[in-house]
Design a protein around this nucleic acid. Structure first.
Length: 424
RNA sequence: GGAGAGUUGGCAGAGUGGUCUAUUGCGGCAGUCUUGAAAACUGUUGUACCGCAAGGUACCGGGGGUUCGAAUCCCUCACUCUCCGCCA
């Protein structure tokens, strides 16, 4: 949620930046400013009315104490009359605030000026590609779903039976590989200064609102109706919400956290070959990194996180590229996003395995996540997060790119975690 | 799941209808004293909104109600604790 003060004081800048995201509904901004004017006016009226009521009430008390009942009753009636007006003003104020809020939550985050213009993924800007060459066509022929069946690593049919499509069952070395990746990713993160967190994987509405999943993406989350909980789509939600309604000190920054969680996504509307195998699941595992940072340092931090993830993917010996997302391909809440894609040999396409974003103060404003510089007034912090990494597509690429006659080779960095060098 | 007791400022903890713009202590910050520090003493101490300012308003778990007036009374929801039951 953008701050109304930003829309008011830097309207031109706001409009220009929003245009990068192809958001052109400027009437919405004007409407927000109008409602804000109304809010101020109503608040002023209400406050002065309440002030008179407070002083009348005080007088009534004193009159009763002094035994002047008749005069007291007079003032009582007067105060009762004022109460009617203040009640109405209060209703007006609540309505105005609600309407203002409804508009504000519809306005996406303003992208950084560094974000390239564009509408489609084809217009994303490739900013880096590592030195590992793409697999030769023909040498790595089987897609991961066939390899998974051949070596009995992942059973999609069994998942269907137990839960439904998109809930695979990992077996044997397939299961061990999952656990190895999770441990490897967590160990790497903690040795890079991220504090490990194990959060709840069910969240309440307030948490869903804080990071921006609610109300807009309600349909993307599984909902436990009986208790009104949501299953987390990413660890970002519970981990960032640790700092909801919090005022940090400058010294506390940056806060660096990492968490492994399963992630649950309904993926309503997805279909076709994009969802084949591990490409798109309802339940998957991911290690997330989250940082809370001073506004002046958040873009340096974003680069640092990008470099960290790059080193991590590199260590798995997978060919990958980094894209700076164009305005049209960015998420609602992000100000700048880097996507990481590994190349899948058998599928002959790039698979997204990580997304690293700076949200600036967009989430912090919803979360009321602030920090205080010395004795100054609290100000909103910046939040950032990234996948480091999401497992399924990493596994897909590992299986496909490392397949050979004698089996599937495990990258060196992982062998200490898997306990085996080959799947055969 | 059943019964009971609670939720007050950074923390502890008073306050059962008007002087609560919330007692007090601890902690924090500033100062005095000191070569420096500690101790002691003095002062100060939250958040949000409205207002050019002076100042005003709201917030005692959330929401609603009673009243001229609510931390205090009523309703409701959430959470915490204790005991019982069940249980990894």
């Amino acid at each position: 949620m953008l701050q109304i003060s930003f829309l008011r004081d830097k309207k031109e800048e706001a409009l220009q930046r929003l245009a990068i995201k192809n958001f052109n509904d400027f009437s919405l901004i004007d409407k927000a400013l109008e409602f804000d004017d109304q809010r101020k006016k109503t608040q002023t009226e209400l406050d002065s009315l309440l002030s008179s009521q407070n002083s009348l009430a005080k007088q009534v008390g004193e009159l009763f104490k002094g035994g002047k009942a008749a005069e007291a009753n007079d003032l009582k009636n007067k105060s009762a009359a004022l109460k009617e007006s203040s009640k109405q003003l209060n209703i007006d104020l609540e309505r105005i605030e609600k309407e203002l809020q409804e508009i504000l939550v519809k306005i996406p985050n303003a992208p950084s000026v560094k974000v390239p213009k564009g509408k489609t993924p084809a217009e994303n800007e490739e900013v880096y590609r590592n030195k590992i060459s793409l697999p030769e066509p023909g040498t790595n022929s089987l897609p991961h779903w066939e390899l998974a069946a051949k070596y009995d690593l992942i059973d999609f049919e069994l998942g269907n039976k137990i839960a439904g499509a998109g809930f695979p069952v990992y077996k044997g070395k397939g299961a061990k590989l999952q656990r190895a990746l999770i441990n490897y990713f967590l160990d790497q993160a903690t040795s890079n200064g991220y504090r490990e967190i194990q959060p709840p994987i069910l969240i309440n509405e307030a948490s869903g609102f804080g990071t921006g999943q609610l109300p807009d993406k309600e349909g993307q989350m599984y909902h436990v109706g009986l208790d009104n909980f949501y299953l987390i789509p990413t660890a970002e939600v519970p981990v960032t919400n640790i700092y909801r309604d919090t005022i940090l000190k400058t010294n506390d920054l940056p806060v660096k956290m990492t968490a492994y969680t399963p992630c649950f996504r309904r993926e309503a509307g997805s279909y076709g070959k994009d969802v084949r195998g591990l490409n798109r699941l309802h339940q998957f595992d991911k290690v997330e990194i989250v940082q809370i940072q001073h506004p002046e340092k958040s873009y340096d931090t974003l680069e640092e996180m990008k470099d960290y993830v790059a080193a991590l993917v590199d260590s798995l010996e997978l060919p990958f590229r980094i894209l700076k997302l164009c305005g049209g391909d960015m998420s609602f809440a992000s100000a700048l996003t880097y996507d990481f894609e590994v190349y899948s040999g058998a599928q002959k396409k790039w698979l997204e395995v990580s997304s690293v974003s700076n949200f600036e103060s967009f989430q912090a404003n919803r979360l009321k996540l602030r920090f205080r510089e010395g004795e100054q007034k609290p100000q909103l912090a910046h939040t950032l997060n990234g996948s480091a990494l999401a497992l399924p597509r990493i596994v897909a690429a590992l299986l496909e790119n490392n397949q050979a006659e004698q089996g599937i080779r495990i990258p060196k960095a992982l062998v200490a975690y898997t306990g085996f060098e080959m799947i055969s």
